[in-house]
Nucleic acid binder design. Structure first.
Lengths: 347, 347
DNA sequence: TTGTACGCGTTATCAT
DNA sequence: ATGATAACGCGTACAA
């Protein structure tokens, strides 16, 4: 059985192709009677419109790209995908995930994007762009919405959490608990600056200074490579803890860039027979599931909702409307759990 | 600047459209000289082939659907997606994720799939199908590959882990450690049987029986609802632990259906001042990152590699070849960590 | 409200 | 190896 085409349906319903097209897409100017006839004919012929043919004829692809930084199987990226999918799918849009791992891939991605005509819009998450890239964004010729991008330049709309404010509240928590020396532990920061990892690092620096910590009271320790395999994470964490504990007078307040990373550091700390909050305080960032299972104090964000919001902005832009809020900054709120408490005596 | 079309390139290169098409797709029968001319013309006009137009003309969409059971933001599903993407993207295929949460959505999905002509193949993960669905699969009219599906019926190819063998090895571990009574804790099993959650439950039952456990020595405890939010997970786990500990003589060997679920149960157990492996042994399934952070004994599987393999089978099928192995069953291997040990005395 | 007819940008068939 | 041309299946002015 060859596939039914729109003209088969037209013939079966006794109307023209154009009317079938209008009826099936819920367009106006179709009488209820004809619409019913057409729908029935389509149903009995087991027919739906071909997305590719529609795309070719209309110019709309009904697809939106989701470009994430790094692998798709992290809690954050997967949750954003879920959130985007949730609002796009009911509207008939496909969500096409993509990711790049280095600057070269990113450049090629942006170069091919506009001419491929394979998507109507793009959502870009967690990228740290230099100005050259902002120009590329504008040249894309389609709506571009940013998610947790440090700058709004080049984006038609964006949503993100207020990293700076969140980290400030974290720093202030540690200070109010009496921690005289504090540390920030973070992932590897690649030189080509594709990833957005440095926003929180910078935020910690300034927050600590503002809270009155001197340069000697702050220690920043980053991973020295970018191998994210679980096994390597433990090794990385071990190295970080070694550096942490070998400070002349080691920090007792620790903030981590993400919950996953913090969990590894925390684990190594326990392996050294140190306990939180007895011997130190430690807090993560994200409120990922692992922070719950560890009762880790953290800063809450909801990537599913960020994805929802980004997708809604895309939809508005695609309709030619302005999003309710063009550039939105939502707070990440402190969640107190069991790993933070008063600084140990004498520190 | 209007977009360049294939005929613009043809004109610029001084050849016909047909030749441009052949040259740009790396087809045979194009002289190196013309190919170079064409490529250069395309480059200078900033041209690439339109996927939609190609699809319409050729019938190939260069897209494959990935249907997962449940949300995309679980470790397993996100990892499968990553694995599929990794092998499909270099070949020029888009990976389109989709998921359904109940039987009705699933039926509609399958009904619309063949007539939408929006994908060349489909990968289906972790679904428990009844026979009616197997027929629908065959009627899809495109390659269908299964991933961790309990049966191979209806699939053109499949890959999955050997749940039964893995669970048997887990049960035997507990028995060899001296646990006289054992329990299996698992997620909610919906009545419409869309999810594949029952495979491991059934496997545990038979493995326990074969290992010599009597009916009174086995306790199965499932969640009584399907709310997977992190906060509810803790509540669910609390209920399960309550039931576990209020048994006449409670089991000391516990297996969980997944690491995530097991982690929640384990946490509640610790909250009751019970410690593993001192008071009980507990093991998970999957070797998800959380099992590492908890040093949880578990059964290892690698969903990224499963995704890779499934995608490779799709590619083979699409080329009209037979996959290297049509139906593949890979072992899930026991990973001994810190939460299992000899049964407490007197039990 | 409905129909006519053209165009969307390729691929594929058949010549040459 | 290359060129002409007919599909591919739909959207959309424009006309009726």
């Amino acid at each position: 059985m060859a596939r039914a085409t729109i003209s088969d349906v037209a013939a079966a319903a006794g109307v023209s192709q154009a009317t079938v097209s209008r009826a099936l897409r819920g367009s106006a100017n179709v009488s209820p009677a004809t619409r019913a006839k057409v729908e029935q004919a389509a149903e009995s012929l087991n027919f739906t419109l071909s997305k590719s043919a529609s795309t070719l004829a209309s110019g709309r692809t009904m697809r939106v790209l989701l470009l994430v930084s790094g692998p798709l199987n992290t809690w954050f990226n997967a949750s954003v995908l879920q959130g985007v999918y949730d609002v796009l799918a009911p509207e008939g849009y496909d969500t096409i995930p993509a990711f790049v791992t280095n600057r070269e891939q990113l450049d090629r991605f942006f170069r091919d994007l506009p001419r491929d005509r394979n998507a109507d819009a793009i959502i870009i998450t967690s990228f740290e762009f230099d100005t050259a890239l902002h120009d590329q964004l504008s040249a894309l010729g389609m709506p571009v919405v940013g998610l947790n991008s440090p700058s709004t330049a080049g984006f038609d709309a964006s949503i993100g959490i207020d990293n700076a404010a969140a980290i400030t509240s974290g720093v202030q928590l540690l200070r109010s608990l009496g921690h005289r020396r504090i540390a920030f532990v973070h992932d590897y920061i690649p030189h080509d600056m594709v990833y957005g990892t440095s926003t929180r690092v910078a935020a910690f620096r300034t927050a600590a200074a503002q809270a009155g910590y001197g340069d000697d009271d702050i220690v920043m320790i980053g991973a020295d490579h970018h191998d994210t395999t679980p096994a390597m994470l433990d090794v990385t964490a071990a190295g970080i803890v070694a550096r942490l504990l070998s400070c002349e007078q080691h920090p007792t307040g620790i903030m981590g860039e993400t919950d996953e990373f913090t969990a590894a550091v925390y684990k190594e700390l326990r392996r050294q027979h140190l306990a939180a909050p007895r011997d130190f305080s430690i807090m993560g960032f994200d409120d990922a599931p692992v922070s719950r299972t560890l009762d880790l104090t953290t800063l809450h964000q909801n990537p599913v909702e960020l994805g929802n919001a980004a997708a809604r902005k895309v939809l508005a832009l695609l309709r030619g409307e302005a999003p309710e809020q063009t550039h939105e900054l939502v707070p990440a709120t402190l969640v107190l759990r069991e790993t933070t408490g008063r600084a140990p005596n004498g520190r």
